[in-house]
């Protein structure tokens, strides 16, 4: 009799702990872990390297094509994606135990869309110039596969803090590729970096030009077109996989 009571108590205390966990949105295991433990650091660093969202998970290619003609929009876009991903991962992870699984995709979509609209509205009011520069791309964050992909794959099954790190890490991995691609496209396509003419000034004729252009150098107009972004991403994937052979899938 006494034994039975004991087990019942154990069960109820377990349930209580679980309830508490749901209310506080924290899992016990997380509380004990140091907040920058090796495992958590891996959440941040993996997407930059062996688990990169673009080159390994192959997510978010669409926006990598569209906004990598120049460095500046690429950087602003990366920051905006990072903000949206960090918050959406956090919010979804907070309510992950409440979301009915049948409508979870819709719930995620609503949360991401609401966040994007919030970002857009705040930018329009307080950072008007930035918002004008990003124009349609802010809205396009909603359709960025990385956001939904990470919500499905990570935030739904992990704690709040870990999800936050995962969001920031994946956005950083995405931003890193974006910036590398934009660097080469702006440099080779228009001979500029951040709008500055680093390769010299291109005049109408060779005689009027300075720097490399005076030697007869020409910009590669192909770099300005979207297909070149794919080719550069392809080259990055090639370099990454030749350095790290375990990423190569078996044919």
């Amino acid at each position: 009799m006494a034994k039975e009571n004991n087990t019942q108590e154990k069960v109820s205390s377990k349930e209580e702990a679980k309830k508490k966990e749901m209310i506080l949105f924290l899992s016990n295991s997380e509380e004990k872990e140091h907040f920058l433990s090796k495992q958590n650091r891996k959440l941040l660093s993996d997407p930059l390297n062996d688990d990169n969202p673009i080159t390994v998970q192959v997510l978010g290619i669409c926006s990598a094509l569209a906004i990598t003609v120049q460095l500046e929009p690429a950087i602003v876009m990366s920051i905006a994606v990072m903000a949206v991903m960090a918050f959406s991962n956090m919010i979804v992870s907070m309510i992950r135990n409440l979301i009915p699984s049948r409508i979870r995709i819709i719930v995620q979509l609503v949360i991401v869309a609401a966040l994007v609209i919030l970002v857009d509205q705040i930018l329009k009011a307080y950072a008007y110039d930035v918002s004008k520069q990003l124009s349609v791309f802010v809205g396009l964050i909603i359709t960025n596969c990385i956001v939904m992909g990470r919500l499905e794959a990570f935030a739904l099954g992990n704690g709040v803090y870990k999800s936050l790190l995962d969001g920031i890490g994946n956005a950083a991995g995405y931003g890193f590729i974006l910036i590398v691609v934009a660097f080469f496209r702006e440099l080779l396509g228009s001979g500029k970096l951040f709008g500055y003419e680093v390769l010299g000034h291109k005049g109408v004729t060779v005689a009027e030009s300075s720097g490399l252009y005076a030697l007869g150098y020409e910009n590669n107009g192909l770099m300005l077109l979207s297909p070149m972004a794919l080719i550069i991403v392809g080259i990055i994937i090639w370099i990454q996989r030749s350095r790290n052979r375990k990423l190569i899938e078996e044919a």
Binding site: I103, I111, I117
Partner: peptide, 16 residues
């Protein structure tokens, strides 16, 4: 499912 959806939509709409 319905209650969750309704609450979510109302909260999000109010915030926006």
């Amino acid at each position: 499912t319905f209650i969750f959806a309704i609450i979510m939509v109302v909260v999000v709409a109010a915030i926006l």
